[in-house]
Nucleic acid binder design. Structure first.
Length: 530
RNA sequence: GCCCCUGUAGUGAAACGGAUAUCACGACAGGCUUCGAACCUGUUAUUGGGGGUUCAAAUCCCUCCGGGGGCACCA
C-alpha cells in the first residue's frame, strides 16, 4: 500500500460496490478526524438514499477494522476516521526503514510514463529574465516530482538557434558597430554592444552575413545561459536540443509537412501553405510555409513534436511564459496530429518588477530588464527557488526589488532548512543508550502530530504529481517544519528515559528523512548547519 | 472586440465543490540554566459587488467592477 490514505480508501471501498471514486481527505482540524470522506454524499445520489443513513452503514462496516481507533458520522453525512496508534507506528516504522525512499512511488510498468519536460527554452539572444527563472525552477522541481511519482523524465532545453531571431541578433550586432542603421526590432541591451565590441573583427568580417554572425553570438549567449542555469541555479537539463541540428538538419520539418499534407490538413492560400488548426480548437488556421517559401517557426515546432514522438515519449509537458499563451492551441493541434498520447502546456504568469512601489517596465529587446542571474546573486539560489516554488504558476506576482534582499532573510526557506539543521543537531549530539525501539512510547500530542504529518508525505507527493502542483510540496514542507519545531520545543531526546529517547530518536530520523525528501524534490539544499 | 490568468487579513500568498478559510511577513502581547531562539505561544478576514446551480461555493455558471497577458506569413 503506497500510503495510509490509500489503505483507508481501500477499506471503505469494500463496502461500496458501485464504481465510485472514494475520495479521502486529511482535514486541517483534528476534530474532523485524521481522515475524512464525503463518499456518503456521492453514494446518496447513486442509491437515492439519505447520506446520513449511508454514512452510518459505512461506519458499522469499518468498526473493528485494525486501521481505525474511532469512526464517526458528522455533519449531514461526513465520515470521519481516526487512525489507531498501532497503524501510525507501523507507518512510522516504514519511514525509518525506507528513509529517503519513503513516499517515492513504484508504478507498474503499464502506468509508468516516459515524459519529455521542456522548459526555459529561452532564445539565446541575451541573458535569462526573471520569467525564465520562474519557469526554470518550476520545471526543475516538476521533473523531480514526476520522477518521485514513478515516471521517467527527460528535461529538455529547446534551443532556437536558427531563424529570424538569430538573423535579428546578427543585425543588432552590426548596428551596434555602425555597419547598418538601428531598427525598432533590434536587440539593444548593453550586452549586445559589449559582445560586438569584444568581437569587432568578427563583426566586420561577417557584415554581409548576419545569420552567421548571429549564430556565433548565440552560441556564446547559450554558453552563458548554461552557466547561470547549471552552476548558479542548480537547474539540471538532460538535453539541449538544437533546433538547427535536431529538427531542421534531420529533416523533421519536411517530415512534419509531409505528414500534415498526407492527413489532408493543409491548403494553399495567397501563396502560403496553411494548417487547419481550427479543426483542433484553434481560433484560426496557421501558416506552415510562407509566401517566400520559408518554414514558419510553428512548422519547425511541429517538427520538434514529431521528433519527440519518434524518440518514443509517451507525453510531453512544456512550460511557457505568458507571452506564449496565443501559441498553445496550435501546439496542441500539432501534438494531436503527430499522435502524441499526451501533451500538456503550463503557462506561468508574469513576474512584475516593482521598485519603490513603481512598476519597472522591462523589455528584452530594449535591454531594460533585471536578469535571472542578478536575482540569484542577490537572494541566493535556495531563496529564489523557494520564493517561486511556494506559489502557483497561475499567480501574477509582484516582485519588489527593494525588498528582494530583505525578503531573502524572511524567506520561509530558512524555516524549513532550520528544521533540518535541528534534526541533524539532535542526531549528532543527543546521547541515547542502545536498545530496542518501542515506537508506542511516542504518545504526547507533539509526538503524534509530527508522526501524522510525516505519514502524509506519500499522498502529498501523489497529489502534487497528478496536478503538476509543485507548490503543494513546498507548503507541506512548511507544515512539517512547523510541527517539527513544535516537537523540538516541547520534547527532548537527550536526558529522558532511555527507551523514550530511542523512540524519539527514531522520530527525529524519520523527520530528517522526509525533510530531505521534500527539499530534494524542490531542489533546495538541506544544510546540516546554518 | 475575442481568448487566457487573476481579485482572499496591513502586505505577499494557500486551499481535488466539502465542515471552524491555511501560511509567511508586518503590528501588538509573552517565552531561552538544556539536543542551535534563523525557534516557540497568543491576538489580527462575514474570500471585489450582485444573482444562480448544489445537501454543501473562495472554488462551478451568469452579470457588473478592477488588475495582468495574448490575439503575425515574429519567436
Amino acid at each position: 500500500m503506497a500510503s495510509l490514505r490509500e489503505a483507508v480508501a481501500a477499506a471503505l471501498k469494500k463496502s461500496i460496490p458501485e464504481p465510485l471514486a472514494v475520495e479521502v481527505t486529511i482535514p486541517d482540524a483534528e476534530t474532523f478526524g485524521h481522515f475524512s470522506t464525503n463518499v456518503a454524499f456521492r453514494l446518496a445520489k447513486e442509491r437515492k438514499a439519505s447520506p446520513l443513513v449511508l454514512a452510518e452503514e459505512l461506519k458499522r462496516a469499518l468498526l473493528g477494522h485494525e486501521l481505525f481507533s474511532r469512526v464517526e458520522v458528522a455533519g449531514s453525512g461526513f465520515l470521519n476516521m481516526w487512525i489507531s496508534h498501532d497503524a501510525l507506528y507501523g507507518e512510522l516504522k516504514r519511514i525509518t526503514k525506507e528513509k529517503k525512499r519513503y513516499g517515492r512511488m513504484k508504478l507498474p510498468k503499464t502506468q509508468q510514463k516516459y515524459i519529455q519536460l521542456e522548459f526555459i527554452s529561452a532564445n539565446p539572444t541575451g541573458p535569462l529574465t526573471l520569467a525564465n527563472g520562474r519557469g526554470g525552477f518550476l520545471g526543475d522541481a516538476l521533473a523531480n516530482l514526476l520522477e518521485a511519482a514513478g515516471h521517467t523524465v527527460e528535461r529538455e532545453y529547446y534551443v532556437n538557434d536558427t531563424g529570424n531571431q538569430v538573423r535579428t541578433l546578427g543585425n543588432s550586432l552590426l548596428a551596434a558597430q555602425g555597419f547598418i542603421s538601428e531598427e525598432e526590432k533590434f536587440y539593444k541591451g548593453e550586452y549586445v554592444k559589449e559582445w560586438a565590441r569584444a568581437h569587432a573583427v568578427l563583426v566586420k568580417r561577417h557584415q554581409n552575413k548576419p545569420e552567421v554572425l548571429g549564430g556565433r553570438a548565440a552560441a556564446d549567449f547559450l554558453k552563458d545561459i548554461k552557466r547561470v542555469i547549471e552552476k548558479k541555479s542548480g537547474i539540471h537539463f538532460d538535453r539541449y536540443t538544437s533546433e538547427k541540428r535536431s529538427v531542421h538538419e534531420k529533416g523533421f520539418v519536411k517530415k512534419a509537412l509531409t505528414l500534415f499534407k498526407k492527413r489532408g490538413l493543409t491548403y494553399e492560400n495567397e501563396g502560403a501553405v496553411w494548417l487547419k488548426t481550427t479543426e483542433f480548437g484553434d481560433d484560426k488556421d496557421r501558416v506552415l510555409v510562407t509566401q517566400d517559401g520559408f518554414p514558419t517557426y510553428f512548422l519547425a515546432d511541429a517538427g520538434h513534436y514529431l521528433e519527440t514522438k519518434q524518440r518514443g515519449f509517451d507525453g510531453k509537458i512544456v512550460i511557457l511564459g505568458p507571452d506564449h499563451y496565443g501559441y498553445v492551441s496550435r501546439i496542441q493541434a500539432a501534438a494531436k496530429i503527430v499522435d502524441l498520447a499526451r501533451s500538456d502546456v503550463i503557462i506561468t504568469q508574469a513576474v512584475r518588477l516593482v521598485r519603490g512601489g513603481e512598476e519597472v517596465k522591462m523589455s528584452k529587446r530594449k535591454g531594460e530588464f533585471v536578469t535571472f542571474e542578478e536575482l540569484v546573486d542577490e537572494v541566493s539560489p535556495d531563496a529564489a527557488r523557494f520564493f517561486f516554488q511556494m506559489i502557483s504558476p497561475d499567480t501574477h506576482m509582484d516582485f519588489d526589488l527593494d525588498l528582494a534582499k530583505e525578503r531573502s532573510l524572511k524567506n520561509p526557506v530558512f524555516y524549513l532548512q532550520y528544521a533540518h539543521v535541528r534534526a541533524t543537531g539532535i542526531m549528532k549530539k543527543a546521547r541515547v543508550a542502545k536498545g530496542g525501539v518501542e515506537l508506542a512510547l511516542l504518545d504526547t500530542p507533539e509526538d503524534i502530530r509530527l508522526v501524522r504529518k510525516l505519514v502524509e508525505f506519500p499522498s502529498v507527493l501523489a497529489d502534487a504529481a497528478a496536478h503538476y502542483a509543485v507548490h503543494h510540496v513546498t507548503r507541506y514542507g512548511l507544515e512539517l517544519a512547523k510541527l517539527f519545531h513544535n516537537f523540538y520545543e516541547a520534547e527532548r531526546v537527550d536526558g529522558v528515559e532511555p527507551a523514550l529517547g530511542r523512540a524519539r530518536m527514531a522520530l527525529v530520523r524519520a523527520s530528517s528523512a522526509v525533510l530531505e525528501n521534500v527539499l530534494g524534490v524542490l531542489g533546495v539544499t538541506a544544510p546540516e548547519e546554518m
